[in-house]
Structure formats: C-alpha cells, structure tokens
Write a protein that binds this DNA or RNA. Sequence first.
DNA 1: AGGTCTGTTCAGCT
DNA 2: TAGCTGAACAGACC
Length: 248
Amino acid sequence: MPELPEAERARAQIEKVLGREIVFVDDRDTYVCRPHAPGEIAEALIGRTLTVAHRRGKFLWAETSDDGPELGLHLGMAGRIAIDEPAHEKWDRFALEFADGSRLALRDKRRLGRALIEPDFDHIGPDAALISRDAFRERVGRGSMPLKARLLDQRSLAGVGNLLADETLWRAKLNPKRAAGELSEEELDHLRRVLRAATRDAIRKGGVHTGDFIPHRKRGHACPRCGTTVDRATVGGRTTFWCPNCQP
DNA sequence: AGGTCTGTTCAGCT
DNA sequence: TAGCTGAACAGACC
C-alpha cells in the first residue's frame, strides 16, 4: 500500500534504468494502461530511453529521449517497481525491456496501478514533503471537511495516504474529525512540521507499511503515549485510529 | 469456504 | 463548488 515514501523508493528504482534503449514494452493490460489500446505505449516508447525520473506525491513520471512523450506510472495500492527480477506472468501489469537485457516491471497484485503516456498532473497538489508554509495554510486549512479527509485529498496535497495521515495526526495531537477550516495558523504550521518529519522518518524506515511505523493502529490497542485505548471510526471514507485523550 | 476488509483514485451524485 | 458515496481491483485475512 504505497504512500509517498514507497513512491520515492520507486522513483529511485526507475533512475537505475535511465539511458537504456527500450526495445520491448508489455502494455497488454488495458485496465492498467487505460485509456491506451495495446501497443500504443509501445509505439510511443520503443527506440527511446528514459532520461529523468520525477515524483510528486505518489505520482511518478519519466521524461524520454528525442522529445518523446512522458511515461506516467502510479503504484496504486499494492504496486512496486521491480528491476531485473524474473518476470511474473500474473502480477507484472506493465513492463519495459531494454537493449542490454534489463527489465523494469510494474508489479501489482491488486491491478490498481497505472501506466500511461503524457500523464496530466494539473489537478494534483504540491508534494507533501515540499509544500511551503503559506501554501499549506491555504490548501489544508479550509473547508468543512474533516482534517484527515483534507490530508488524504491529493488535489490539496500530494502524497499522504491513510497510514501516514493517522501517524501524522497522532504525532501532532490533532483530532482527525475536526473541520480543517477551523484550525488556527499555529496548528496548521505545527501540523506541517510534523507531517514533514513523519514523512522523512517513513522514508528512512523504508516505507510506512513496515509494521512498526504506527503500531497502535489496531482495534483495542493502547496509545503508546498515554495508554488510553484508541478509538476507531471511518473518517473521509477510510478506517481511522486515534487517541481520544491525546487527540481531543 | 465465504464474507469482510484492505487503500487510492475517479465518476457520479447531491 | 464542496463534499460525499460507491465502483474498480484482487489478494489477505478471519
């Protein structure tokens, strides 16, 4: 279940194959490669190389040589980038093969990942790890939506998933159900600092889904800070855990 | 073995 | 327009 930290690892993986000539593209999965027909992505990429790998939030894209189209990739909920691993017939939803025999695959059990050319990121907000203080105040601190729902909205802010949202709100001692627009500037600034720190920690630990990032995120578990049993509810359409004592 | 849960994005409502 | 709901997917889990 990739979030920003996992996406950054994936971007680094893509960097390993920059400059290699693409000789084959497996774009047969019309769901993952929508809206393209089979062969369209292949036609656009064969003969070119990937030149630069970018990321904003969870969205990945690579520039291609000779003014070629950009290649957009998204890991969905279960995807990862596999470099030079033996091909997996079922789970490799998209793949590039290079002239030197190496291979890049979008390996995704759930099939919610995406691969497409000329991706459009106009509607995606600034990266959660890079957003300025003023932009954060403006984009997050508005509206009547629950604060957690606002953090998960990739148009407001790109990169925060369910686990990172819970971890960040727990560290910041903010209740996920509070209306985002009712936070003070001080609370928003604090939230932004905590979010950046939590994101850095998650990247360092190799991702947010390693198990120990937010250990109390289970029914009936105790808050690591005060021992209170955590509450559980659906907020913004997502399962949410919080400490009713620390996050009033 | 079957039902429930999982998370992100997007379409389609109000 | 803002915000909410459910569909899409398919494996993990109980």
